[in-house]
Simulated scan of single mutants.
Amino acid sequence: MRRWAAAAVTGAIAVALVGCGPAPWNAPGETPDAAPTTPRTTAPPPVPNDLSGGSTERQVTAGAVAASLNYWSDLSMDRWTATALKPVSLSLATTVTPDDGQRVYLQKATMIAVPGNAQGDLGPLAPTSDQSATNPGYLVLSPYSYSQTFYVEEVPAEATFVTLRFTYDFLVQTTPTSNEYAKQTGTDSLTVAIAPSGE
């Protein structure tokens, strides 16, 4: 009986030791299977387009001169492809502060088109400008205004937008009867999306 009892105790201890071993899922060097993950794909942000509504209005200040500008294009935005000749038109009129009766003239307007994409600028195109053929320039003091159309030529195929950088050189009479002028320069920029060519 003593031998049987001793064997029974030994078997019980062995069973207890087996039962106290580490769980298979916590064995050293092993980790539980991670839940499968679905890779996330983020859609590229929409390309900004200042002419998406057909036109846009801006206010530009150059010293004592305040210019009200309106930009638009007669070419629909879905046809602003990389290879198209893309027109952008503008009109402007100015006021001057203080208004003592002096006039404001536009001596020169310049546009530089810089195509780009999400990776950055792709290099500027050649600048285009309108230099006044009259001296001292185009009279742009309201109610007189200035209108012009510039053209954006072909841009690289990988371009998704083009930034249009404008510079306006104004001449302001120092007095209403003076033949001397103060030069004031204003700048502005637009971003226009390049439409897919559909090829």
Rank of each mutant, 00 (worst) to 15 (best):
A126Q: 06
A64D: 00
A66K: 09
A64T: 10
P143W: 12
Q102K: 11
D78V: 14
V88M: 11
D130E: 05
D121Y: 14
P127H: 14
A84V: 02
Y138L: 08
N70V: 14
D121H: 13
A66Q: 08
L122W: 07
N135L: 13
S91M: 11
T97F: 13
G101V: 05
V65G: 12
S129R: 04
P115N: 05
G137E: 01
Q119N: 11
K86N: 09
N70H: 15
N135G: 12
A66H: 10
A82Y: 13
A113N: 06
A64Q: 08
S68Y: 15
N70F: 15
N135Y: 15
W72I: 02
S76N: 08
T94K: 01
G137Q: 01
A109I: 05
D130N: 12
P124E: 04
N70A: 14
T81S: 07
T97R: 03
V96Y: 03
Y138P: 06
Q131L: 15
R79P: 05
A64N: 03
L139F: 15
A82V: 03
S89G: 13
R103L: 14
P124A: 15
R103G: 13
Y71P: 04
S73N: 04
S129W: 14
G120N: 04
D130K: 09
D78A: 13
P98Q: 04
Q102Y: 10
L106M: 09
N70Q: 11
S132G: 10
A82C: 10
S91K: 03
K86Q: 05
W72Q: 00
D100K: 08
I112N: 01
P98K: 07
A66P: 01
A64S: 11
M111T: 02
W80V: 03
V65D: 01
T81E: 00
K86S: 09
A113E: 02
N70D: 05
S129M: 09
A113W: 05
A84Y: 02
L90K: 06
P136Q: 01
L75W: 05
G116H: 07
S132F: 14
V88S: 06
D99I: 07
Q119L: 14
W72T: 00
Y105I: 02
A133E: 02
S73I: 10
L69A: 12
T97G: 09
T134Q: 06
P115C: 13
L139M: 06
L69Q: 03
M77H: 09
T95C: 09
L125S: 06
A82T: 03
G116R: 02
S68F: 15
T110F: 14
Y71D: 00
D78F: 15
S91P: 06
G120R: 00
V88Q: 03
L92G: 08
S129D: 06
N70I: 14
A67N: 02
S132T: 02
S142F: 15
L92C: 12
Y71H: 03
L92N: 02
G123V: 11
L75E: 00
W72A: 06
V96G: 09
S73Y: 15
D99R: 04
A113F: 13
L141V: 03
Y138R: 01
A64Y: 10
G101E: 01
D99N: 14
Q102I: 10
